[in-house]
Design a protein around this nucleic acid. Structure first.
Lengths: 291, 291
DNA sequence: ACGATTCTCTGACTAAAGTCAGAGAATGGA
DNA sequence: TCCATTCTCTGACTTTAGTCAGAGAATCGT
C-alpha cells in the first residue's frame, strides 16, 4: 500500500504539480500569481496572509509589486482603519481570468490523450482520491457552543431540519439543547473541521452520572460521504465512556435516513419512546462497555 | 470533468506535493536532496542533468556541495574521460535510506486517519489515477529498427514468445521481419514510449502496393492495461491507410490471448491460413477504407 | 484615558535556485 | 592530423522566496 501511495505521489507531482505551477505563473513570480488568484473579489490583507501562510512583510511587498503592475489596488476598510483590503483592478480581473483559462486548458490537456472510457474512469478515480484525501484532513475537537464555527454548525442544523421536516422545525418546541447544556460539565459539543472550516458537529447532554443523550448531529452537505458522521459518533462515544456514561440515548426523525442508518450500523438499537419530543419518531439506545 | 480535474489538482498538490518536498529536504536545499536521490547507485553527471532538467553549471555546483558534505564522490568514467560519474559514499547511502524511510512514513501518515475500507479504496483509486495519468504520457513515433530502444522492444518480443510458446520461439524459423523489411520504403516500425522509456512496438511489412502485414506487436509487461496495444494498432493502421494499403493481415498464436482479443475488438476477422509460419495458429484480416 | 494589542508597512538581510559565458580536457569524424 | 563537438567545471550574475526587527497608526479592554 505504501509503495502504491509513493508511486502515486511521484507520478502525480510530476504530471500535475510541476506543470501547474510554472505554466500558470506567466513570467510573473509564482508567489504573486498565487496572491492574485487568492484576492479574487477582494480579500483583507490579513486573510491573504493566513490563507497563503506567508510573512506579513512578504505579502505587503508582493502587493506593492502587483499595484505597480496595475493589477491590484489596496485600500482601507471602513470599519477598522488598521485593516486594508486588496481588490483587483479591471486589468487584474482580466489577468485572473487568463489564469483561470490556463488552468482549464491544463486540465483538459490532461484528459486529451485518453479515449472516452478512460477519461470517465480517470475522473471518477480522481474524485475518489480527492474525497478520501479530504477525509484524512478531518479534525474533531471539543468546542464551546458560543464559538463562531460551532454556531455556524448549530444554526445550519436547525435550518436543515426546518427544510426537511414537513411542518418545519422550531427548536423551542423540541427538547432543549442550549449552550449551557452543551458545555462542560453539563455536556460537550464536538466540532469537525477540514482545513479549519466547520463541516459538522454533534453534542452530548449528560443526564445523571451514567446516562447521556446525543443531540445536534449534523454534517455539512459539502462533506457528506467522507465519514464525518461516523467519526463524530465514535469520538463522542469515547468521550462519553471516559466520562463514565454507561447508556447513550438519542431520538431522531424518519426523514433523517442517513443518520438512522449510521446509528443502526454503529450498534444503536431502536427502543420504545422515552420522550415526547414532537419531532421524534425513532428512539435509540446503546450501552457502552465500561472504560 | 475539467472542474473535477482542477479540484483534484488543488487537493493533491496541497496534501501531497507541498509536504513531499519540504519534509524530505531535511535542512539540505531541496535541489540537493533531489540530486542525492537521483544518484542512487551511481549516475553519470550528464544523465543527472537531463533527468532533472537542470543547467550544467548548477548541477556541477550542487555536486561539489554534496562532495563537501561527504555524501558523494564524483569520478571519471573509464571509457570516456570527459564523462564523470557520481556515486554515493557510505554516508550518502545512509542519507538516501533516511529519505526513503521518510517517504514511507509520509505515505503511511497519509493513510493513517482512514479506516480499513477507506484505505483500500484510496489506494485503489490512486492506482487508477496513476495508470491513467501514465497512459496520457504514451507517445508513438516511427523509429529505425536499429535504434537502441527499438532493439530493446524487438529483443523483448522474441524473448517473450520464447518463454510463452510451448517449444520456445526461434525467429529464424518464423517468417522474417528483419531490420531492412521494417524500414521505409519496405515497411515501418512504430515505437511507443513513456517518458522516453520504450514500452512497446509494432511493425508493418508492405506486400505489394495494397497489402501489408502487421508484425512484432509487443507491449512491455510494465505498461499493460494502459491501452498501449490499441494505440499502436490504431497508429499503424492510419500509417498503412496513408500509404495506400487496403488490406491488413496478421498471424498470431493461441497463447497470445490479449493480442487476439485486441485484434478481434479492433475489427479484424479470422480467416483461412494464408501462410505456413510454424508458430501461427490464427490468421486475421482487416480491410481499410480508402484514405 | 492609557497601555496592550492588532495590523500593515519598510528596511535590511539571507538562502536557494537558476542563468549565461566561456575555459579546458577529451573524443570523434573526415 | 586537426577541426568540431562533447562534457564538466568555474566565475559572475540575477531573480525568487523568505525572515526578522521595528515603526507608526488604529483599536480594544479595563
Amino acid at each position: 500500500m505504501v509503495a502504491q501511495v509513493r508511486r502515486f505521489n511521484r507520478v502525480v507531482t510530476q504530471r500535475v504539480g510541476a506543470l501547474d505551477d510554472h505554466f500558470l505563473a506567466r513570467d510573473r513570480p509564482l508567489g504573486e500569481a498565487r496572491l492574485l488568484w487568492e484576492i479574487a473579489d477582494g480579500r483583507e490583507v490579513r486573510e491573504l496572509r493566513s490563507a497563503l501562510g506567508l510573512d506579513s512583510g512578504y505579502v505587503s511587498r508582493m502587493l506593492r509589486s502587483l499595484e505597480a503592475a496595475g493589477l491590484v489596488t489596496v485600500g482601507p476598510v471602513d470599519t477598522d482603519k488598521r485593516v486594508r483590503i486588496a481588490r483587483l483592478t479591471r486589468a487584474g480581473r482580466a489577468e485572473r481570468a487568463e489564469l483561470d483559462r490556463r488552468s482549464d486548458r491544463l486540465a483538459s490537456d490532461l484528459l486529451g490523450p485518453l479515449d472516452d472510457r478512460q477519461r470517465r474512469r480517470l475522473v471518477a478515480a480522481m474524485a475518489d482520491v480527492e474525497r478520501l484525501l479530504t477525509a484524512t484532513l478531518i479534525t474533531v475537537t471539543p468546542a464551546d457552543p458560543a464559538d463562531d464555527r460551532a454556531r455556524f454548525c448549530l444554526t445550519s442544523y436547525v435550518e436543515e431540519l426546518d427544510r426537511r421536516f414537513d411542518g418545519g422545525f422550531d427548536p423551542a418546541l423540541s427538547i432543549s439543547a442550549d449552550a449551557e447544556e452543551l458545555r462542560p460539565p453539563a455536556g460537550v459539543l464536538l466540532l469537525a473541521t477540514v482545513r479549519s472550516e466547520p463541516v459538522g458537529c454533534t453534542a452530548l447532554k449528560l443526564h445523571g452520572p451514567e446516562a447521556a443523550e446525543i443531540k445536534r448531529m449534523w454534517v455539512s452537505p459539502s462533506a457528506r460521504g467522507l465519514g464525518v458522521g461516523r467519526r463524530l459518533l465514535t469520538e463522542i462515544e469515547s468521550y462519553a465512556a471516559r466520562a463514565g456514561v454507561r447508556l447513550l440515548r438519542l431520538e431522531t426523525n424518519d426523514t433523517l435516513t442517513e443518520a438512522i442508518s449510521l446509528y443502526r450500523s454503529a450498534g444503536y438499537a431502536e427502543v420504545e419512546p422515552f420522550s415526547d419530543d414532537p419531532y421524534a419518531r425513532h428512539w435509540f439506545e446503546k450501552r457502552l462497555s465500561s472504560g
